[in-house]
Amino acid sequence: MTMGKMVHVEGLCAGYDGQQVLHDLTLNVSRGEFMAILGPNGSGKTTLLRALSGVLSSVKGSIHIADQDTCRLSARGRARLCATVAQKNPDLSALQVLSLVLMGRYPHIAFLGGYSDADHDCARRAMQETSSLHLRSRHAGTLSGGELQRVIMAKALAQDTELLLLDEAASNLDVARTVDLYELLRARNLNGLTILTVAHDLNLAALYCRRLVFLKGGRIVADGPTQEIFTSHLLSDIYETPIAVVPHPITGAPQAHLLPRA
């Protein structure tokens, strides 16, 4: 694993139609990190992820991924560096699962070129990892929410990038599938994949991620190793509701518990 910065964001201001969401945000992510972005609703988590993946056009400041200025890269160039799993999936009704996963190989094929055997192998491996290989001949429209989410995950893995961005990737999954997903992320992370995930579930993030970044009002209000910053005081402050933190009975990871307001 080479050392160095995977993501370098400096002075980032971004938003939509005159409404600024992110204010002068600076963030560094080293290679090999597994990091969660947390924060209350409307704090700018998804906007940050969209800015990183290059779909927001009006951004000020600079975003570098793997030492390359993403504004100067083509969509294809960006897609070779970074894959994204979005929060919402489009209506894909008649599209075949295999074709969908192969789309992850698009940044690697030549203009007018087709998907090679190597691309098919890559797609097959990604589907195996997400336990979705048996779905390959199905139409996307016939899948359950959880199945579709795994297929979308396979598409992102097939993209074979060094950086993976996820936005609430576990939102459609049941408990076991959620753990499956995070275990898969952990395994990929140990193999060198840098992962940034937006998460709502504080405890899951604390269980798997070594570093947490809290956003509020479009600014980073806390950033550090999970063990150090996942405290009752900080969480209560950020979410504006009493939260108790106790160690996980088995792993010892800090876990949050809501308290009724007195």
């Binding site: 083509s74 969509a75 897609a79 070779r80 698009y106 007018l112």
Partner: peptide, 23 residues
Amino acid sequence: GFARELDILALGAEQAVQVGVAV
């Protein structure tokens, strides 16, 4: 020539950009 890109646009503009299509 742009048939493959037309397929990927079914993902929606945003996700098409994220897999590398110059939408």
